[in-house]
Amino acid sequence: MTIFFLIPYCKVIKIKKLGDSSTSFSDLCYNLSMKKLLLSIILISLVGIVTPVFASEIEDDYLDIASNYCVMGDYNKAMEYLDKILSINPNNKQVQDLKKGLTHVISKDKKSFVEAVNPQVKQAQEYKRIGDEQMELSALTSATQGENGYLAYYYLGNFYRLKHDYQKAIDSYNSAVSLRPDFAQAFLASAIVLYDIGKFDSVINPIDKYLSLNPNDDLAYAVKSRAEFSLGMLDESKSDNDKAIELNDCPEYRFDKAKILYKEGNYTESKKLFTELLSDIQTSKIYEYMGLCDIAKQDYMSALMNIDKAIILSDDDEYLENKYNEIKEILENNNEKDVQE
Rank of each mutant, 00 (worst) to 15 (best):
T2M: 15
T2I: 14
I3L: 14
C10P: 00
S22N: 15
S24W: 10
F25C: 08
N31R: 07
M34D: 08
K35N: 11
I42F: 02
L43R: 12
S45D: 14
S45A: 09
E59D: 05
C70K: 02
Y75M: 11
A78E: 00
H104P: 02
V105K: 14
S107Q: 12
D109H: 10
V117I: 15
V121L: 08
Q123W: 00
Q123F: 09
Q125T: 00
K128P: 02
E133V: 04
Q145K: 15
N148A: 10
Y150Q: 04
Y154D: 01
N158R: 15
N158P: 05
Y160N: 05
D165Q: 15
V177Y: 12
P181M: 10
F183N: 06
A186N: 07
L194G: 03
D196P: 01
D196T: 09
I197Y: 07
K199I: 01
F200D: 02
V203A: 07
N205P: 00
S212I: 03
A220R: 08
A222H: 12
L234V: 12
D242H: 10
A244M: 04
F255E: 04
T268F: 13
D280A: 13
I281V: 10
I281R: 09
Y287N: 11
E288D: 11
E288C: 09
C293I: 03
Q298V: 06
E326D: 12
N333Q: 12
